[in-house]
């Protein structure tokens, strides 16, 4: 059943992405000031939204794990964090490519760039911690705590847009920027395939976690004899 879901999701994502790419690259006109590189925003911004959503999901699952002690929540938190890391990295990389073309530099210590990087480093620490703990329930407990603490950092990332004067262009959805309706529609519409991709990856990763636990249990059973 889950195999079928993943396959359907993946195909749907691929078709949607292909369609969106055709529209983004061939139909939509160049942005007046920035030229063709502006199109990267259709991946850059939805990738950030997806990453935040994943980290938020991981935090909720971590709280649920601490309350209910069901390892399924832990598997969800681990999977969501790793998928969030992938999308966060995509956001950072696309941002750097855009910055290289428009600002002429790969990196600037602008607060949003820095905050995203800090977020990614924190969640990379979460993944490292999981690797360092053998026992499943202890791993789940400790990583749940780290996930909750890490998510407390996310509002600082988000509000830093407003708190600090920055070189980053004003956010186009939240804040003062203006965007044409066709661009805005595409920005939201391209979020759908990215979200579907995230769900497919999440399902695959959760199954791996579950299989890993089963293998672990079998190994212990074997050692018991």
């Amino acid at each position: 059943m889950r195999n079928k879901t993943i396959a359907v999701l993946s195909w749907f994502t691929a078709l949607l992405l292909a369609g969106n790419l055709a529209v983004i690259l061939l139909v939509l006109p160049d942005e007046v000031q920035q030229g063709p590189i502006f199109r990267i925003i259709f991946f850059h911004v939805p990738a950030a939204w997806t990453a935040f959503l994943c980290f938020f999901g991981a935090m909720i699952a971590s709280v649920l794990y601490l309350v209910r002690k069901n390892l399924r929540y832990d598997a969800f938190a681990a999977a969501a964090t790793e998928v969030g890391l992938a999308f966060g990295a995509a956001n950072l990389l696309t941002g750097m490519i855009w910055g290289h073309i428009i600002w002429g530099i790969w990196w600037t210590w602008d607060w949003r760039l820095t905050s995203m990087l800090v977020g990614l480093i924190i969640y990379a620490g979460y993944v490292m911690l999981r690797r360092a703990i053998e026992e499943a329930t202890e791993r789940a407990r400790m990583s749940a705590v780290v996930s909750i603490l890490a998510f407390a950092d996310v509002p600082i990332i988000f509000f830093s847009i407003k708190w600090w004067r920055t070189q980053h262009p004003q956010p186009v959805i939240y804040g003062g920027g203006v965007m044409s309706p066709a661009y805005k529609f595409m920005l939201f519409f391209n979020w759908i395939p990215l979200l579907l991709l995230a769900v497919a990856l999440l399902l695959i990763r959760m199954r791996q976690e579950q299989t890993g636990r089963e293998i672990d249990a079998l190994r212990r059973e074997m050692h018991a004899f």
Partner: peptide, 16 residues
Amino acid sequence: NLRLRELMLPVLGYPI
């Protein structure tokens, strides 16, 4: 309780 606790404390703590 981690084997690598001297390593993990700064890795987890400093970014936060």
